[in-house]
Computed example of a mutant assay.
Amino acid sequence: MPQKIHIRLAAHRINPSIGVNRRVPKIFTPGQVITEQNEFMRGHGTYEEEGFLKSSVAGVKEQRRRSAEDEHMMRRYLQEGDLISAEVQSVYSDGSLSLHTRSLKYGKLSQGILLKVFPSLIKRSKTHFHNLYVGASIILGNNGFIWIYPTVSNAEDNAGGFVQNLEEVVSRPERETIGRLRNCILALIQSKMMLYDTSILYAFEESQKYSVAELLIPEAMVDVAILTQDRLSMLENS
């Protein structure tokens, strides 16, 4: 017979008599909202979700606001004109944005190709970072910007963050793979097809009968798009 189980929050199980002057600090439990104010810095034991700063562990909040010194220090790493990947945390009334880089996969972008497409053609998914088996990786931005770059062996150490390696030599096969992916995306957007990892990989595979340069021929672009759509339709119907 099913039974109801009620678990009280840690904050409700505190004995006030143990506090100094009967003032007990509030204890947050995992998943509990700490604040939704953007001026507070995300620290250890916290994460951001849907614009809220939440606790990932049980503990007491230590509060610290962003200062002018913090903003000045960031200019050592990021400046106007840098090409970066980040999450848009907030959009303000004056048009300015609050950006957030949760891990080293975000940050400065090094060597690769940038494409701009209609944002409506980017299919929404849980992740927009894809390491493709063909030897290249791709970032599908919700704003319509697409970044194609060589796949690194250890993405957590060598990609993103605040370090750019513009001196590393990209091999010819990698450049050809990146160029082919770019032209395949151009073929898909010409036919107004949705862009996501599966559609791009199918287009890449169907494009093998053409050289990279031939993929810019209108007839080849239409052919690749039709073959890709056929495979996607078969996948949906299977």
Rank of each mutant, 00 (worst) to 15 (best):
Y77H: 10
M73E: 12
V60S: 12
R76V: 06
D82S: 13
E49N: 09
L78V: 05
R76Y: 12
R64S: 11
E62H: 09
V57W: 10
D82P: 04
G51E: 01
S67G: 15
H72V: 05
R66C: 15
E49G: 04
Y47D: 11
Q63K: 13
E48G: 02
G81K: 04
K61H: 15
R75S: 13
E49F: 07
E48T: 00
K61A: 15
R65E: 11
A58D: 05
G51T: 01
E80C: 12
K54L: 07
E80I: 08
E48L: 06
L78K: 02
Y77M: 12
R76K: 15
R66T: 06
S56L: 09
E49D: 09
S56R: 13
S55R: 03
E50R: 15
S55C: 09
E48W: 00
L78Y: 06
G59D: 02
V60W: 04
H72N: 14
Q63S: 14
R75P: 02
Q79C: 13
M73G: 05
K54F: 02
K54V: 02
G81V: 00
R65G: 03
Y77C: 08
E48N: 02
E71M: 11
E62Y: 12
G51L: 06
F52D: 08
V57S: 00
E69I: 05
R64D: 04
F52N: 07
L83I: 04
S67L: 12
S55I: 03
D70E: 11
T46V: 04
E62N: 15
H44A: 10
L78M: 05
